[in-house]
Amino acid sequence: MTIALDKLTDPAVRAFVGALNSGDREAFSAALTADATMSDDGADRDVADWTEREIFSSGGHMDIEKQTHDGLGLVANYRNDTWGEMRTSWRFTVDGGKVSRFETGQA
């Protein structure tokens, strides 16, 4: 069972997931702070490079399975054209209504 986008409780996380799933680079960029950082499987990555490769040029999409009580943690089935589908965890730091850091990895 997946959680609908409008049921995600944190507005910044909802904007992030919505932009990711619609492939909207502009909305995705608007959901992040100017100095946003990220990590993948514990290693810090360049946000622009990673998101282009893992989301936008490879048709990335997440189906949310669970969210934490604070709305800043997700477990999702993530798929893209490069890696197929995998169960992933996501943790977000929000600052001023935008995502300032996200951490993802296999769940």
Rank of each mutant, 00 (worst) to 15 (best):
M1P: 11
T2I: 09
I3H: 11
I3Q: 09
A4T: 03
A4V: 02
L5G: 03
D6I: 07
D6R: 12
L8A: 05
T9L: 09
T9R: 14
D10S: 15
D10M: 12
D10W: 06
D10T: 14
P11S: 04
V13F: 01
V13C: 03
V13Q: 07
R14G: 04
R14A: 08
F16K: 09
F16L: 13
V17K: 03
G18F: 05
G18D: 07
G18Q: 04
A19H: 07
A19Q: 06
L20F: 10
L20M: 14
N21F: 13
S22M: 13
R25W: 15
R25T: 14
A27K: 12
F28Q: 09
S29A: 15
A30C: 06
A31P: 01
A31R: 06
A31C: 06
A31Q: 02
A31S: 15
L32W: 05
L32D: 01
T33N: 08
T33E: 04
T33P: 01
A34W: 00
A34H: 12
A34K: 15
D35L: 14
A36D: 06
T37C: 10
T37P: 08
T37S: 12
S39A: 08
S39N: 15
S39K: 02
S39R: 00
D41E: 15
D41S: 15
G42Q: 04
G42F: 04
A43T: 11
R45M: 03
R45C: 03
V47R: 11
V47H: 03
A48M: 11
A48G: 08
D49H: 13
W50K: 02
E52W: 08
E52I: 00
R53F: 09
R53D: 14
R53P: 01
I55Q: 10
I55D: 10
I55K: 02
F56R: 09
S57I: 00
S58K: 03
S58N: 14
G59T: 07
G59M: 10
G59I: 06
H61V: 09
D63W: 05
D63P: 11
D63C: 04
D63Y: 06
E65T: 14
Q67M: 13
H69V: 09
H69N: 15
H69A: 15
H69F: 09
D70Y: 05
D70L: 11
G71K: 07
G71S: 04
L72K: 11
L72Q: 06
L72S: 06
G73F: 10
L74C: 03
V75F: 07
V75D: 10
V75I: 10
V75E: 11
V75M: 11
A76P: 00
N77I: 13
N77G: 02
R79Y: 04
R79L: 05
R79M: 08
T82S: 07
G84F: 04
G84T: 08
E85I: 14
E85R: 15
E85W: 00
M86H: 05
M86T: 08
R87G: 03
R87T: 12
R87K: 14
T88W: 02
S89C: 05
R91W: 00
R91M: 05
R91H: 11
T93Y: 01
V94T: 11
D95T: 13
D95Y: 01
D95G: 03
G96P: 04
K98Y: 02
K98M: 01
K98P: 00
K98F: 00
K98V: 03
V99D: 03
S100P: 07
S100F: 09
S100N: 10
R101E: 06
E103N: 07
T104F: 00
G105K: 01
G105C: 09
Q106F: 05
Q106A: 02
A107L: 07
